[in-house]
Amino acid sequence: MTNAIEIEDLRKSFGPVEIIRGVNLELRRGERHALIGPNGAGKSTLFHLISGRLPATSGKIRLNGHEIQGKSPAEIAHAGLSRSFQITNIFPEMTVLENLRCAVLWKLGHRYSVLRPIRRLRDVNAECERLLVELGLQDRRAERADTLTYPEQRALELGLAVASGAGTLLLDEPMAGMSHTETAAALDLIKRVTEGKTLLMVEHDMGVIFEVADRISVLVYGEIIATGTPEEIRANPAVQEAYLGTATEEAA
């Protein structure tokens, strides 16, 4: 079985500065993989490269064995990859329901269609209903997205990512800025909606990571300095020095 994602010697420079400096990474199918690293390490940039938001300077990215480097975000989405954003990226003037409708249209095959009003599309309605319940947004369905609370917006952000039905999900700090209880609820949600999918997730909260992740990769200054199970990463002296040391201090 091919890996869900294979990245080979990926590089990205902004002007003279190389931000991603030769990343190699393999995501096994169905695994939950956490990407950690200090601020500014290039985690979000790596996500942008994989999802096609930014073109890479060089290197290869394969999704389920198909080369996707240089393709557009839409093409990569068609190939089975979906993502959420660190900075909430939803449709602010549309309602929650409309946001979700947009996200499920492609997989249900109603692509630039004008054949029937969207209200009449049973499959769309059923799927949106299911998502609303899953995300805990049933009561907010008719609210404009920009009037939601922050955790609700993050849930919607996550919802847009999972709604597309892609087999591989990239989540960029889905719980950033949430309180403890909110984090716990969000974690629960993420576990439920990503059941059976391949997950690559950026997260700063070590507790969350050790609870979710099958494997962890550590990105420091644009390079992956270690990949392994949570135990291996915890025991890795290089990681402790470069990252965990500071992180635990901060947490304390």
Binding site: S51, R53, S72, P73, A74, A77, H78, S82, R83, N89, I90, F91, C102, A103, L105, W106, K107, R111, Y112, L160, S164
Partner: peptide
């Protein structure tokens, strides 16, 4: 931009 990531 988000529309593109939804496949459209």
């Amino acid at each position: 931009e988000r529309v593109e990531f939804l496949g459209f």
